[in-house]
Design a protein around this nucleic acid. Structure first.
Length: 303
DNA sequence: GACAACCTGACC
DNA sequence: GGTCAGGTTGTC
């Protein structure tokens, strides 16, 4: 599901909901979603029963100090130098329910209706219970995501190992142009999706940014003129900021932590709109696979 | 670069 | 039955 704006939305919501709350208990229903310690190179450390018991024990009584986001990683900083690094991948979801909603049958039933599921559901893999009775559920239908417990030092290692590129929202034109130069032979779509080049953009926001800047996803970035580079960066930032403002794109499984849907999907101009008229010129939008991901764009006005 | 793998569910 | 889906990683 989530790209930068969705993770940022979750971060902002949980910032309010979880700040200085104390973890009382953690239930892990699916061991493979949990990782403890740094990732090993070429070794996808699958969560084991032991590591998830360890995980629950490590979290007990810790307080939430604050939340951060790096690329598509959500980071929950905990007391005692621990951190949770959460990657939602395609279908991860964090649902927060305060005690007052949980204990009132009417509000609880409304919440369940809003999120179209019971909690914990069959896709709830981790459940956090806070000392004041609030609960946080990690759901993940496709089970691609994970939650990793790391010390501060381990987190630095994990992040540097990921070789994440700069954050697009604070990226300056000068650096953007230098990055383009370094990756001049890449097609625009591959360039934007590569997390080592720029971190946080996914399929939706890549297609939307390219449409706004009138650049074909197949265009080699090295051939972009300075004014096109500038327009592309501005388009990326505009699209991401607008999406954050509206709480992200909510297709299918992405919900804000109170269970309401992000509204940016109403604003999509081209993503998943193959065959629909181009909002600019009216010609039917074209879809094709680029680097194994579907791109939707206008062959008439994106060059 | 293309492609399979990791999974479930929606849709045709 | 087959195809597709917001992501990433590993193998040709």
């Amino acid at each position: 599901m989530p790209e930068l704006p969705e993770v940022e939305t979750v971060k902002r919501q949980l910032q309010k909901s979880l700040k200085s709350k104390q973890i009382k208990e953690v239930f892990v229903y699916m061991d493979k979603m949990i990782k403890v310690g740094p990732a090993k190179i070429s070794n996808l450390k699958i969560g084991s029963k032991k590591s998830s018991r360890n995980f629950a024990a490590l979290l007990k009584n810790k307080r939430v100090l604050g939340l951060d986001r790096r690329a598509k990683y959500l980071i929950i900083r905990l007391s005692g130098g621990g951190n949770l690094m959460i990657h939602l991948r395609m279908s991860g979801q964090l649902i927060f329910l305060p005690k007052k909603v949980l204990k009132n049958p009417l509000t609880l039933s409304l919440a369940k209706t809003a999120i179209k599921q019971t909690l914990p559901s069959k896709h709830t893999h981790v459940e956090f219970i806070f000392s004041n009775g609030d609960k946080l559920f990690y759901n993940d239908t496709r089970q691609f995501g994970h939650i990793r417990f790391v010390t501060d030092k381990e987190m630095k290692n994990v992040l540097s190992q990921q070789k994440l590129g700069p954050e697009p929202l604070t990226l300056k034109l000068k650096e953007f142009s230098e990055i383009i130069k370094r990756h001049s032979s890449k097609r625009a779509k591959d360039f934007l999706l590569n997390q080592e080049v720029i971190a946080g953009i996914g399929n939706i926001y890549a297609d939307e940014s390219l449409f706004i800047s009138k650049i074909s996803p197949l265009r080699k970035v090295g051939s972009l003129k300075p004014d096109q580079q500038k327009l592309l960066l501005q388009s990326i930032q505009k699209v991401l900021q607008e999406a954050i403002k509206l709480g992200g794109s909510s297709i299918e499984s992405f919900l804000m932590t109170n269970g309401t849907a992000g509204k940016f999907s109403d604003q999509h101009l081209v993503y998943a709109k193959e065959g629909k008229p181009c909002p600019r010129c009216g010609k039917p939008l074209h879809a094709q696979k680029i680097g194994s991901r579907t791109s939707t764009f206008c062959t008439n006005c994106q060059k």
